[in-house]
Design a binder for these strands. Structure first.
Length: 507
RNA sequence: GGCCCGUUCGUCUAAGGGCUAGGACACCACCCUUUCACGGUGGUGAUACGGGUUCGAAUCCCGUACGGGCUACCA
């Protein structure tokens, strides 16, 4: 039941899942599946003040859409719950107390005002943001500076306090990152991070270590922004559970926007989505567009995300989820950040639409068309249409423009494209074509085209000059598949009707 | 400021001491197509800079510059 590889993804329910977040899940998922391990999701909801209602559900919806459903989570059960960090409160406190007892941590009674004062007092030009570290902890109000009986008294009275880790003064902490190799830190430069907050909730630092231990996590992967706090986590593992039980770490590079770190704002600013799915912040009512709603296929989305910072060493770029599981390797993940390129993202989607089987696109296209007032009940027809137009659709909504005219005569025709070159002979040609099509024994692309060209030849007209008008008659504009293909799908009566109506319009 | 991570075409990247630094997106040209696309062929375009090590460096080492992250009782 418990497998060798257990990885977990731990989002905080404070907003939508952006590109970097989804890529982190993806890589976690791929690694777990590749090694036939378990993929867990734990929710980091220990910060009540930043908790956003609905965000947790949103996260699971996103995972579902991407096809990255966890084996164990709040929703999926399992043997290592609870999967909401806030539900582990008691257990976390106990570990923090243990650290104090062992001399690796201490109680601190400083109020927020005290901390603010400290930052002001010790601020210099060389050090604009002084930390609560070994150089100043002996100047603060904590169980290191207070006499033991006073500490006891304060605790007994229920004075608000936190528990901080006591960073060693001069030690080098190092670990091997699966992507970066050996990374080391001087502990004297790291501050005494809060482990347990005044409200009894653990901070991420304590929670990630305790939970990973309890959940028997073998590999812990997260974004590069966590690298600076890694020494704290390494030390906690050493103090609490032993380094030999510590998971292997990997820190993924960041995904960058056009101007540095990719932000929510970049989406609106540069016109591309940054979240997997639409996310409306209930606090501000601000909408951040999603790839799903923009018209991306989930397969394309995870494909493009996977390739943003990883490749298999060959020239292959299109990977299905199964391919990715098979080919993925942590060693080939880049260490440098990758700038997101929307043009390339769209290319991936285009490739996936082209390679999609027509019937798999049916429900999506049907829904899209019905949003535009076109109800399709002929699946065979729809299938033909999708097959005809999918090569020219980059985003899913392109299907609307590319295929509505098959189901509904165009409301306006691009008359200007025809009129300047319209003539009596051309009008006569189309009248004759109509009669011919009415009587044609076969109704297929080939016959339609042959008859068309024959009549043109008889009337001493170049087919080329007639194709555009014909297209405008059927489609309304200068786009779409081959005209005779369109006519075939449209059927005899519809084709003839559109020609007749248009002739009057052009005259 | 300090600490950490990073630096190959505009962008994503290949090449982990050895032939003209390869591919993809985008862009340009041509072909195909009497629409728009798809497709095909070709083109422009990169090893941040300076030192080492070496017969030989994009690749290893050092420095500089630049970019990013962290520096909360947020994750």
């Amino acid at each position: 039941m418990s497998k060798k590889v257990r990885v977990r993804f731990a989002p905080s329910p404070t907003g939508g899942l952006h590109l970097g977040g989804v890529r982190t899940v993806l890589y976690n998922y791929l690694f777990a599946k590749k090694h036939d391990g378990d993929f867990l999701v734990r929710i980091e909801d220990t910060d009540q003040s930043r908790y956003v209602p609905g965000a947790e559900e949103y996260i699971f919806d996103t995972l579902k859409w991407c096809g990255l459903e966890p084996d164990e989570s709040v929703l999926h059960g399992g043997n290592y719950g609870p999967y909401r960090q806030s539900e582990r409160k008691a257990s976390h406190r106990q570990y923090a107390e243990q650290l104090v007892k062992d001399g690796y941590a201490y109680y601190a009674f400083d109020t927020p005002e005290d901390l603010e004062k400290m930052r002001q007092d010790f601020k210099t030009e060389q050090n604009p943001s002084p930390q609560y570290d070994h150089t100043i902890r002996m100047k603060m109000r904590n169980s290191l500076t207070l006499p033991p009986d006073e500490t006891e008294k304060l605790l007994a009275e229920g004075t608000r306090h936190v528990i901080r880790i006591k960073m060693p003064e001069h030690e080098t902490v190092s670990f091997t990152d699966m992507i970066r190799g050996e990374v080391s830190f001087d502990t004297s430069l790291v501050d005494d991070k809060v482990l347990l907050k005044a409200d009894g909730m653990p901070t991420y630092h304590l929670a990630v270590v305790v939970d990973d231990f309890l959940m028997k996590i073998s590999h812990a992967f997260r974004g590069e922004e966590w690298l600076p706090s890694a020494p704290v986590h390494i030390l906690l593992w050493k103090y609490l559970f032993g380094l030999e039980n510590m998971p292997q770490w990997a820190h993924f590079p960041l995904i960058l926007g056009p101007n540095g770190k990719l932000s929510k704002r970049d989406g609106a600013k540069y016109g591309f989505p940054v979240f997997a799915m639409n996310w409306t912040d209930p606090k501000t009512n601000e909408l951040t567009e999603g790839f799903k709603e923009k018209g991306f296929l989930p397969e394309a989305f995870i494909n493009l995300l996977a390739l943003l910072g990883w490749n298999d060493g060959t020239e292959q770029e299109i990977f299905s989820k199964e391919d990715l599981v098979e080919k993925f390797s942590m060693e080939r993940v880049h260490s440098a950040g990758a700038k997101f390129d929307y043009e390339k993202a769209k290319w991936f989607n285009h490739e996936w639409i082209k390679k999609s089987i027509t019937y798999s696109l049916q429900p999506t296209v049907k829904a899209l068309l019905s949003q535009h007032g076109i109800i399709v009940n002929n699946d065979i027809l729809l299938d033909k249409v999708i097959g005809l137009v999918k090569d020219r659709c980059t985003l899913l909504p392109d299907f609307v423009q590319q295929s509505s005219f098959f189901f509904k005569a165009p409301e306006t025709l691009d008359v200007d494209a025809v009129k300047p070159k319209w003539s009596e002979t051309k009008q006569l040609f189309f009248a004759e074509l109509t009669r011919n099509y009415e009587l044609a024994t076969d109704w297929n692309t080939l016959t339609l085209e042959n008859n068309f060209k024959e009549i043109a030849a008889v009337n001493d007209l170049k087919p080329g000059e007639l194709m555009l008008p014909f297209r405008i008659m059927l489609v309304g504009g200068k786009f779409g598949p081959g005209v005779f293909d369109i006519a075939e799908v449209l059927g005899r009566s519809e084709t003839i009707e559109r020609i007749s109506k248009a002739i009057k319009l052009f005259a």
